[in-house]
């Protein structure tokens, strides 16, 4: 049942097969492309600030898919039907988290290659950026899913989720982008730790939110 659910969720959210799911990646590359136009093609300036821009783009790209992550399946009665078949909400959300990350993390990492080229990020900085995004995107996906589940039953949920994600994602951004400024891989450990903690609590928080939305 879990595998069938994962296949379905992936088909829903994966770029180019799901509906409009490529948008976050396109958005991510677009930001990286626009930045040199806005600040001018100074290679030094770009090498210094480019990594931070990529992180901000990644964070904002994480907001885009939130709207349809949970709310549509609640409206559809999808989670109710799974519940009747004995599947716990926590398991549904764990599967959804995995599917969400797979459809958002790896494509973003791939898109980092052209983005880094546009921003003149090279060598050690590029490696730190890639490692940081690899460690940070599961955390971003977890925050996103948690917020999407919590706001699913609210009318202005979509607008609210963007506002909620930004402060919660700050620690990941600070340590992730901070590693680039100091050229120090140690703070990526913090990014990984934050991500792990978020990934661990998200299925429970989101599952409880789904149950609470039913009672409403």
């Amino acid at each position: 049942m879990i595998l069938a659910l994962l296949r379905r969720d992936l088909a829903r959210f994966f770029p180019f097969t799901g509906s409009g799911a490529a948008l976050p990646v396109v958005f991510f590359v677009a930001v990286a492309m626009l930045f040199p136009f806005a600040v001018g093609p100074d290679a030094n300036l770009m090498a210094k600030t480019g990594g931070g821009v990529v992180w901000i783009a990644a964070l904002l790209a994480a907001i885009l898919p939130l709207e349809k992550l949970v709310a549509r399946d609640i409206e559809l009665g999808f989670f109710d039907q799974l519940r009747l078949r004995g599947l716990a909400e926590e398991a549904m959300m764990a599967v959804r988290l995995l599917a969400h990350w797979l459809s958002f993390g790896p494509p973003l990492l791939l898109a980092t290659f052209p983005a880094a080229a546009l921003l003149k990020i090279e060598g050690e900085t590029f490696r730190l950026l890639l490692a940081g995004l690899l460690a940070g995107t599961p955390g971003l996906a977890a925050i996103g899913l948690m917020i999407a589940a919590l706001t699913a039953s609210l009318r202005a949920g979509a607008a609210l989720s963007g506002l909620l994600l930004i402060p919660l994602a700050l620690p990941i951004l600070i340590f992730g982008a901070g590693a680039l400024a100091r050229q120090d891989a140690a703070s990526l450990g913090f990014v990984g730790a934050i991500s792990l903690a978020l990934v661990a609590i998200t299925p429970f928080a989101a599952g409880a939110a789904i149950r609470a939305a039913r009672e409403g």
């Binding site: 829903r12 009665g77 039907q81």
Partner: peptide
């Protein structure tokens, strides 16, 4: 016994 539920929502992916 196993339950089956029919309500106003289909549970079927619209796309």
């Amino acid at each position: 016994g196993a339950l089956a539920l029919l309500d106003e929502r289909t549970g079927l992916d619209p796309d």
